Amino acid sequence: MLNRSIPLSVAVVGLLALVFYSQWNREPPRVSGFIEADEIRLGSRVGGRVAVVHVQEGQEVTAGEVLVEFEPYDLLEREKELELTLAARESEYQRFLAGFREEETAQAKAKLDQLQARSDLLIAGPRKQEIQAARGRLAQAEAEKRLAVQGFERLSKLAGSNATSQQELDAAREALEAATANLDVRQQELDLLLAGTRAEELREAAARVEEARQAWQLMQRGYRQEEIDQAKASRDAAKAALQAIGRQKEELRVKSPIDGTIEALDLQPGDMVAPGAPVLSMLDRGNLWVRSYIPQNRVGMQLGQRLRLNVDSYGDRTFHGVVTFIARQAEFTPSNVQTPEERSKQVFRIKVAIENEDGMLRPGMMADVWLDEHGGAP
Rank of each mutant, 00 (worst) to 15 (best):
R253P: 04
R224Q: 14
Q230M: 13
L192A: 15
T197K: 01
R213D: 04
R253H: 09
A244R: 09
P257V: 12
K239M: 11
P269S: 06
A237G: 14
E227N: 03
A233V: 14
A244E: 14
E201D: 04
A195G: 06
E250R: 06
R253F: 03
R203Y: 02
A206M: 15
G260Q: 00
Q220W: 07
D266I: 13
E251S: 02
V254D: 05
A195Y: 07
A195Q: 03
K255W: 15
M219Y: 08
V209P: 03
G196Y: 13
Q225H: 11
S234R: 07
A240E: 05
L202D: 06
G222T: 05
K232H: 08
A199I: 11
Q220K: 15
L267R: 03
G222Q: 03
G196E: 05
L194Q: 15
V209D: 08
I245G: 00
R198L: 14
E263A: 15
K239Y: 03
L267S: 02
I245L: 06
D266M: 03
K232S: 09
A212V: 09
K249F: 12
A206P: 03
R221Q: 14
D229K: 06
Q268K: 11
A240M: 02
E211N: 09
E227R: 09
E210N: 13
D271M: 09
A233E: 07
I262G: 09
L192E: 10
W216E: 02
D229H: 10
S234M: 03
M219L: 15
L218Q: 13
D236G: 01
D236Q: 10
A264G: 08
Q225S: 11
A264D: 11
D271H: 10
L193A: 05
D229G: 04
I262D: 03
R253A: 12
R235Y: 14
I245R: 01
I258D: 04
K255R: 15
E204V: 13
A199G: 11
L265G: 00
R224W: 15
D259Y: 05
